[in-house]
């Protein structure tokens, strides 16, 4: 099934990892960053994610996504939280029109790294997982195959629409629409595309559903087999255990540090 990631996934340890183990990783890393009192842990994880992306040979698009999202969101949050957070007491930079406060900046940094960890780990999972494998893994752990199909179908809709839109745009140019034409004329040409594109992808899905039905997809009381074998290997067990332990440790240490019993987070001169 042609999907967002049906092929062209370079072979790597990450690509061979069981999809469920990767999902465990996304949850574990993200939650750990969330409960950790400051941004240092998240920053470390982001660095590790970059290494992982390099190993999985998707460093270039990964960097693009992380910076494309990270830079604007950092600037925005730094501006809002750093300059206008009510918690601000210590001024670290005078911008003239506003003062950048330490507490707000730390808070902004924490939000940014948390978002980046979730985004990055999710992006890596998505980039290194053939969607068919993910769905096969889901059905393996007992998710009904209909739900699996729903997931696949909805994941398919977007790239399918993108392809459609690309072709229709070709045809618009072939009928004289300037590529560089004014924003208004391009928007005017683009908006009407959405109707037929959505409509046709809906009818496509309906037709696909019907062909599946005629090939016995909806059959009951039969244990369906899967063409894609997704094996859970020892390394997956190890990774899942590591992820779990990591999350538990982060939770415990994070809570302890919040209650003030122990201090792990670096003292920045104020509380983030």
């Amino acid at each position: 099934m042609p999907g967002p990631a049906s092929n062209g996934i370079p072979d790597s340890p990450l690509a061979r990892m069981h999809p469920m183990a990767k999902i465990a990783g996304v949850c574990s890393l993200g939650l750990a960053t969330l409960v950790w009192p400051d941004f240092t842990m998240g920053l470390g994880i982001v660095v590790i994610l970059f290494v992982a992306a390099a190993l999985a040979r998707v460093l270039r698009p990964f960097t693009g996504v992380m910076f494309g999202f990270g830079i604007p969101i950092t600037l925005m949050l730094l501006f809002i939280q750093g300059c206008y957070s009510p918690k601000n007491t210590k001024v670290i930079l005078d911008l003239g029109f506003a003062e950048l406060g330490l507490e707000g900046s730390l808070y902004a940094a924490k939000i940014v790294v948390t978002l980046l960890v979730f985004l990055g780990s999710f992006y890596l999972t998505n980039k290194t997982t053939y969607m068919g494998r993910l769905v096969a893994a889901l059905t393996q752990i007992g998710v009904p195959s209909k739900i699996g199909y729903l997931i696949l179908a909805s994941l398919n809709v977007v790239p399918q629409m993108q392809r459609r839109i690309a072709v229709i745009e070709q045809s618009q140019h072939a009928r004289g629409l300037e590529t560089g034409g004014g924003l208004i004329s391009r928007t005017r040409a683009f908006l009407p595309l959405l109707g037929p594109v959505v409509l046709s992808s809906l009818t496509d899905s309906q037709e696909r559903g019907m062909t599946l039905e005629t090939r016995g997809f909806g059959i009951r009381r039969v244990r369906q087999t899967s063409y894609l074998e997704v094996v859970w290997r020892r390394s997956d067990t190890v990774m899942t255990i590591l992820f779990t332990v990591f999350l538990v440790l982060a939770l415990v240490l994070g809570c302890l540090s919040r209650t003030g019993l122990v201090t792990f987070a670096i003292q920045w001169g104020g509380r983030a």
């Binding site: 459609r164 072709v167 229709i168 070709q170 045809s171 618009q172 072939a174 009407p192 595309l193 109707g195 037929p196 594109v197 046709s200």
Partner: peptide
């Protein structure tokens, strides 16, 4: 175009 759906919008 070969497929009119590619063209009509």
């Amino acid at each position: 175009f070969q497929n009119p759906d590619d063209q009509l919008f």
